[in-house]
Amino acid sequence: MKWQRKDILAIEDMSVEEIRHILHTAKVMKEILMRPIKKLPTLKGKSVVNLFYEASTRTRTSFEMAGKVLGADTTSIAVAQSSVSKGESLYDTAKTIQAMRADLVIIRHSSSGSAKFLADILDAGVINAGDGQHAHPTQALLDIFTMEEQLGEMDGKKVVIVGDVLHSRVARSNAWCLQKLGVDVTLVGPPTLVPVEMAGLGVKLTHDLDGALPGADVVMALRLQLERQQSGLFPSLREYSHLYGLTTERLKKTGKQSIVLHPGPMNRNVEISDDVADSVEALIERQVTNGVAIRMALIYLLIGGSGNVVA
């Protein structure tokens, strides 16, 4: 397909064809990434700016690595050390970046919609690396990529996502991505974290994890923000873990060899027991590698020129 999009902002507005094209490109990128000498001249002379308003090691490093492998010059604007901490607005920062003639900007920001806000201002492409509670498209893409590596085409398979769905951009992006690809998705958590209005995502909701597990091919545990307890959203980690923690025993209820995913970092013995966490370490490492491949694919598609064919 011919790539048209300037920005990657949310899975919600992407077509199945586009998602498939990204996954296909990522497969090629992963091969390149596994080579002993991983440096391409493809994006030589292109500049990629990482603009991270929220702390993130994994995602920011992943984007930096992806840009560097492709030969782009990457710059990270660490917000605490820049003029943003002096109160510069995102609008003014965007104008500055525009003037520096960056080719691509990766943004992570605590406000939903901030990536679209930036994309509307910039001529440069924008990749959303997480905006508030709205979207985290690259995480969803690397998750589906990992699932398909393990299980083959996901069409018709069943995925259970459990945890703090209300506040999770990972859950939202995964819900859109998976259902577009024909996956049966169920979101699970207590009513305070999976309220009825989440049905607007078009997927199943339930508060009963044990009832949702049978037949699940993939179980994804979301990271629980521990401060939610102080806001009264659940009474204790003990009760949360009892109802929604993934344990070896509980995972048997799927009735098959399911895989467990976690966007990391994990709260051990809260949303995931120690033994499950240990058993999925290898897969989580694979997710990290796949994350670089997905981001290479996206950077390449957005600023790699008109051909969009990987040599």
Binding site: G113, P195, E197, A199, G200, L201
Partner: peptide, 13 residues
């Protein structure tokens, strides 16, 4: 307003 639209966009309701 809290509802399907706020939930979809991840804007606090």
């Amino acid at each position: 307003r809290r509802g399907v639209t706020s939930a979809r966009m991840g804007l606090k309701g």
